[in-house]
């Protein structure tokens, strides 16, 4: 009997449609975010994260419609990230039914945004997304990247996470840019260092290739939640499979 570790499927949404080839058995429209969300809910997903990868800002409103539709029929926490620039963007997403928003680039560009948003909407709905890469020089450490991993900031990932938690971030979504897409597993050292450094929950992300990796994120990385995209999308594994694997390794999960 205790707080469980969360399993969070992540869906990339481009102009209102799920991309990266989500494939479910028996699903009629794999590109429909609502259908995908419902399916993950049935499988026992603890939360859902939508990442808006829409490139042009004039089509961003489609994400509002997606959130509206999903929040009307799927009753688990929803996080939305991608392209959030202002308190007004956050307000609109929360009003549409998002429970949390995740902010990366905008937090770096405007260091007050997290503080202002947390004061206005509460820390519980402000997630700091940290995209981190190992430094290539001899210095030991991880650097924060923005703009989808394209721009180095010079900031130390651990110090940055602590700084933003101090001003009000309620959770950290931590992605290893070195591991993202490799299927080699989370960067466990990065995960452990951030998790030990901050007092708020940490979601490990980037690199999951098998169910064992999810368990490692918790047992070795110290993560409070694990996020994955492709291993769930292609029907290789369900969220329920992931939880059974974690439970077999002694991790408390909601089954």
């Amino acid at each position: 009997m205790s707080l469980t570790k969360r399993v969070i499927p992540c869906l990339d949404v481009d102009r209102g449609r799920v991309v990266k080839g989500v494939k479910f058995v028996g699903i009629r429209d794999a590109g429909d975010p609502l259908e995908a969300a419902k399916r993950y809910d049935e499988q026992g997903a603890d939360e859902l994260t939508f990442l808006d990868i829409t490139a042009s800002s004039d089509q961003r409103d489609t994400m509002i419609n997606v959130v509206e539709a999903v929040a009307s029929e799927v009753f688990i926490p929803l996080t939305v990230g991608g392209g959030i620039r202002s308190v007004e963007d956050i307000r609109r997403l929360l009003n549409a039914g998002a429970d949390k928003v995740s902010i990366n680039t905008a937090a770096v560009l405007d260091p007050d945004l997290v503080a202002v948003a947390a004061a206005r909407f509460g820390s519980q709905c402000i997630v700091l997304a940290v995209d981190a890469k190992r430094r290539r020089d001899d210095s030991d450490g991880f650097e924060v990247y923005t703009h989808g991993g394209r721009k180095a900031t010079g900031k130390d990932a651990i110090a940055w996470a602590k700084q933003m938690v101090d001003v009000g971030a309620g959770e950290i979504l931590l992605t290893s840019m070195d591991r993202d897409g490799t299927r080699e597993g989370f960067d466990l050292e990065l995960t452990r260092r951030v998790s030990d450094a901050v007092s708020v929950p940490v979601i490990a992300s980037g690199g999951v290739g098998c169910l064992e990796h999810l368990a490692q994120g918790v047992t070795e990385g110290g993560a409070d939640a694990v996020l994955a995209a492709s291993i769930f999308h292609f029907g290789e594994h369900t969220v329920a499979d992931a939880k059974r694997c974690m439970a077999a390794r002694g991790i408390p999960v909601r089954l």
Partner: peptide
């Protein structure tokens, strides 16, 4: 700290927990 794992418990208490 968690009684069984020794991990520091995070605040806020966020996620799914049992209600007895």
């Amino acid at each position: 700290r968690d009684e069984s794992t020794g991990e520091r418990l995070k605040v806020p208490h966020m996620g799914w927990n049992n209600v007895r």
